[in-house]
Design a protein around this nucleic acid. Structure first.
Length: 620
RNA sequence: GCGCCCGUAGCUCAGUUGGAUAGAGCAGUGGACUUCUAAUCCACAGGUCGCAGGUUCGAGUCCUGCCGGGCGUGCCA
């Protein structure tokens, strides 16, 4: 994760060869986007180019020097800044400020693009970009060109797997956070030009499914008043009791109904067992359990799929573990692994030497009883995923699985898959707070265990937004009181309100007979107020925000940024009268700014899967 | 013990991949509705960035070692 090794950062002078290696995450290469059409990369290229002459005067060539350009934190420092003089000072044995002066003196720019160059602080060279540049970016935003520039992925396919919950019960809130991240990451990857493929892996083959079937069967037999034995470690959730009583009351009607939900191609593997529950009971025990398991699986997958749908999740593929077994992929993967020379036998089991890949101990692939482990099945699954032609695979896992990363990645390497192909993002736990206290998530009592209950409580939009406010690797404290509040403290409503407010202003304009024109350079040139320009400078960052969020796999950057953006709009709204009959030109300009802001907020909300309303509901 | 993650304002967290005076929301205090939606805005106050070293012109950010918290560490899935 962004590990760079301790090699220390290079000074201004670029070493001759082979160093530094690109950071692991730079493969999306978003930095090179936007080179055409006046994008940010073009401006940066122009500035770098301008340094050529002054650098040559110092006896340096472009290729020898790394020119970092970045947006200063403090706006008074301009739009772009470089530390070039600071980093060159040491190797050249010069004083930074003096050097900065010399460098800056030799720079020449088109004033429309770079308005001014200043030396500041210890030796930074700051650039202020011209208004025509900003206006150009706004127009590119409006036309869609600005977002087209960052589509640098070349349509390469990336598989994003998330949730993949065991099909043994309703989805819980842990899955909800994974859903929010996974789906948003897919949309982000699409936005930067990849072909993102969402996938859900269904563990429908292991012992747990048998256990599920046995648990349901026990519940059913109990309701029937027949002798039953509840399986050890079986599933005790109330949902199985309900499922059993449904079978009892409706029997084949319930079965048909459940089966109908999977009446389509992508779920061919999900079918109803033959006969009805009474028939199943008459079968030998293992047969009987299989039938109950098949039915339970069908029901639960139906719930899970419905819950996902309600949460706005769409999966391109539901991949069934049972398919791996039926198509002999487990054996095939095992054969491929044997060729890697990383397997050995010990105490009757077959092991994988994962320590060769940094794991702390070696892992079993096939148990002494001949059964493949979950690890092997997972390797076979990912092996197949690779064979299906994905450029990269990104998995979202729960915190309890982080110990599996090294062995999985090691296994993939042993299968001949290129390093870095499988990327694993760990999502940390969620704690729910009510009255400022954490609520216990006991499966018995907890009312917020399921994802559906959470949506009932706070709504899908609020839940999604909240899940995306912290980085994946941080624990999330989910304040239910805040999430329920339809008020200013709730960031979701803060942002939605900004959007609705703009829509309202636009409606008022129409009602007042003011024409709303498309943004134009001449119109936008009318913007002069500080709060207008604070907004402008932020709006044009959208492509960069999207790029970084996608590259760094950090969808949470979107929520933070859009809250900030909404704030800038609210400030502008308070400081500037938008519709002013006394000033038709200015009204025109400001309505353009409103439209652009609406566009950007709507785009970000679309990425995180939250509705952008035109009206807010009535206040209570 | 070992591995991974986290430690920033009273609370919950950002921090643009090493930059300039560390930011926001909530909580606190005080203001702004004759006004395009006050679901909003403005102001004040709040800090030894867990501790100690190191690398660097420059560290919340990178390295090492401690301290504190979470999770993991099965021939389970």
């Amino acid at each position: 994760m962004g590990r760079r090794g301790g090699a220390g950062r290079r000074p201004g002078l670029r070493p001759r060869r082979g160093f530094p290696p690109p950071p692991a995450r730079s493969r999306l290469a978003g930095r090179r986007a936007g080179r055409r059409a006046g994008g940010p990369a073009m401006i940066e290229a122009i500035i770098r180019e301008a340094f050529k002459t002054p650098l040559e005067k110092l006896g340096l060539y472009e290729d020898d020097v790394v020119i970092d350009l970045e947006k200063p934190r403090d706006r008074s420092h301009g739009d772009l800044s470089t530390n070039l003089a600071l980093s060159l000072a040491k190797p050249l044995g010069r004083r930074p400020r003096e050097l900065a002066g010399e460098l800056a003196a030799g720079l020449e720019f088109d004033k429309d693009l770079v308005e001014s160059v200043e030396i500041a602080g210890p030796g930074f060279i700051n650039f202020r970009l011209g208004r025509p540049y900003h206006i150009g970016r706004l127009l590119a935003l409006w036309s869609g060109a600005a977002l087209a520039e960052i589509r640098s992925g070349g349509g390469k396919r990336i598989n994003v797997e998330f949730i993949s919950a065991n099909p043994t019960g309703p989805l819980n809130v842990v899955s909800a956070r994974a859903g929010a991240f996974g789906m948003t990451l897919c949309r982000l990857l699409e936005a930067v030009g990849y072909d993102a493929h969402s996938e859900y892996y269904v563990n429908d083959a292991g012992r747990q499914v048998t256990l599920l079937g046995a648990s349901l069967r026990a519940n059913y037999l109990q309701l029937r008043g027949r002798p039953f034995l509840f399986p050890e470690g079986g599933y005790e959730g109330r949902y199985l009791e309900i499922m059993a009583s449904e079978l009892l009351d409706q029997d084949s009607a319930a079965i048909q109904l459940a089966a109908k939900a999977f009446d389509n191609e992508s779920f061919q593997r999900v079918t109803a067992p033959e006969g009805n529950a009474e028939d199943w009971c008459a079968l030998p025990e293992d047969e009987s359990v299989r039938c109950f398991a098949k039915y339970a699986l069908m029901k639960i997958l139906g719930w899970q799929r419905e819950t996902c749908q309600r949460f706005g999740l769409r999966f391109d593929t539901w991949y069934f573990e049972s398919e791996l077994h039926e198509t002999k992929r487990i054996e095939r993967t095992l054969d491929a692994l044997r060729k890697s020379d990383r397997l050995f036998e010990q105490e009757g089991a077959l092991w994988f030497r994962s320590t060769a890949f940094g794991d702390e101990k070696d892992r079993v692939l096939v148990r002494a009883d001949g059964e493949p482990t979950y690890f092997l099945a997972d390797l076979a699954y990912h092996h197949h995923k690779h064979q299906r032609g994905f450029e990269y695979a990104i998995d979202y896992w729960g915190p309890d699985h982080h110990g599996y990363i090294l062995r999985m990645q090691g296994g993939m390497r042993a299968l001949g898959v290129e390093e870095g192909w499988l990327e694993v993002e760990i999502l940390q736990h969620v704690t729910f707070l009510e009255d400022g206290r954490p609520i216990t998530m006991s499966k018995r009592k907890g009312q917020f265990v399921t994802m559906d209950a959470l949506m009932d409580e706070v709504g899908a939009d609020v839940a999604k937004f909240f899940f995306l406010t912290r980085k994946p690797n941080s624990h999330l404290e989910f304040d239910l009181d805040l999430a329920r509040a339809e008020s200013s403290e709730n960031p979701v409503y803060y942002v939605k309100y900004a959007h609705a407010r703009i829509c309202s202003v636009l409606r008022n304009a129409v009602a007042a007979g003011v024409a709303i024109g498309e943004p134009t350079a001449a119109g936008l040139a009318g913007l002069t107020h500080e709060s207008e320009w604070n907004l402008v400078r932020e709006l044009i960052r959208l492509p960069q925000i999207v790029t970084v969020a996608a590259q760094a796999r950090e969808p949470h950057r979107l929520t933070g940024w859009v809250v900030e953006l909404a704030g800038l709009f609210h400030q502008f709204y308070h400081q500037c009268k938008i519709i002013d009959p006394e000033a038709p030109q200015l009204t025109d300009s400001r309505l353009m700014l409103c439209q652009l802001t609406r566009l950007v907020i709507a785009k970000v909300l679309e990425l995180i899967g939250v509705d952008a309303p035109e009206h807010m509901g009535e206040k209570d």
